[in-house]
Write a protein that binds this DNA or RNA. Structure first.
Lengths: 233, 233
DNA sequence: CGTATAATCAATAGAACACTTGATTATGGG
DNA sequence: CCCATAATCAAGTGTTCTATTGATTATACG
């Protein structure tokens, strides 16, 4: 192997990793997988694409060793290939935020029109949760809540929010969070809550960012079960 | 703007950054720019492509705000758009190394056949330089040496090595370094040195990695000028 | 002013990629 | 044993990307 061939082959390998990050859909899939393991089907649903397409993207992510898959019965479970992948994804997104002004522009355009810019201070949030001053809602799908959630948070998937409104407190401050800064579920949740007279705000970060800041994370099912008790499939 | 449009636009932006990292040539250009500013021409030369092609890739890197360019007279100087870009590049490469076994395989195949696997311990290298036990050679182009180099290193660009051999010590251990682990200049330098009876080894890291480990870095022209004295253009 | 050089632009052809669709392969349940 | 479902495979199509080539712009210098 001569000098040039070596160089070219190395950069070709680095390019493999780069190409994995070149598709918006694949990045969205990585973002979702940062929340915890998913089946191919739920991944496809969460990212708004067909099963075949998601499977194809997964193949690429697997080839770059960013994602691992494991067959369990009829389902295939996908997960990030290691904690360093999730950390890298956050670093990647942080770089994009720092370099591309468009991202902030788009976010302002979207959130600004919804009067949702006020952030919740994460440093004091935990105390307020402990003191019962605020109620934290995790509006992601129940499975992601089980993988990891903010301690003390209540799992109320967005799809169930309307029907569970009656059992939510009327006066207490409510803080909703979802997958992260670019996930819209918490935005929709806050809109619903406010429409029904609740004092609601959005936490702009999700569990991966929460964890990376060294804050504690809880696992397992919702400690306060709903009338139809949580079933572990 | 509706929820889905927002999400899609955000991931589209992240994809812009990803696409910048999808081309081996662009990655190589980033690697070279980690050494310091370059003109478009020297960048094209260092990465083995035509001027027009390099200019085209630069356009993409500029669009992603990874690289800044500045016109100075007849030349255009390119540099990384900020220190976080260089740090990210190292993180990106580190992830690729940890995920893609092929990279280590290719490196072993290349270096192994040259019996060059023995590494130099960076922790003790600096002392040995101070004590005069070893001579450190920076075999990169002089301009990169001027941007930043390992303290105490002597600038001997690979192209000039053969003609400057006579003035290099015959008994002292020599350690050569270049741009980093995948740059072949130090490998070629060690081959030349050994062919002429010197005790030579390769330092597998370059200045960016050296700096990131918190080790000191020097700037400016070679303190020991050669017969044709260094001219700062 | 005209020439040489650095750099960009513009047009092109070939390769790689993304999404769709329909067929195929596993696995578990009735 | 057959069917329903999750997932992958395979082929087709339109798009995007990359490298090449030749023309054009901008700047310095004699």
């Amino acid at each position: 192997m001569d000098h040039r061939a070596f160089k070219d082959r190395i950069y070709e390998q680095l390019g493999r990793l780069g190409k994995s990050l070149a598709s918006p859909k694949r990045l969205e899939m990585l973002d979702v997988l940062c929340q915890g393991p998913h089946t191919v089907e739920s991944l496809a649903g969460a990212t708004g694409q067909t099963l075949a397409n998601a499977s194809q993207h997964l193949k690429a992510l697997r080839a770059a060793r960013l994602v691992e898959t494991e067959k369990q019965g009829l389902y295939v479970t996908c997960r990030l290939a290691g904690p360093e992948v999730g950390e890298f994804f956050l670093a990647f997104r942080r770089l994009a935020e720092s370099r591309l002004a468009e991202i902030e522009r788009i976010t302002r355009l979207y959130l600004g029109s919804r009067d949702m810019l006020e952030g919740v201070d994460q440093a004091t949030l935990l105390e307020r949760v402990r003191s019962g001053e605020v109620l934290v809602l995790d509006v992601r799908p129940a499975q992601e809540y089980r993988s990891a959630h903010i301690p003390g948070a209540l799992s109320v998937p967005l799809a169930e929010l309307e029907q569970r409104l009656a059992r939510l407190p009327r006066r207490r401050q409510i803080v909703a969070y979802c997958r992260g800064p670019y996930c819209v579920m918490s935005v929709e949740a806050v809109e619903i809550l406010r429409r029904h007279g609740r004092k609601a705000a959005r936490l702009e970060i999700g569990v991966p960012e929460w964890r990376q800041r060294g804050l504690p994370v809880a696992r397992g099912p919702d400690p306060a079960p709903s009338p139809n008790p949580v079933e572990v499939p």
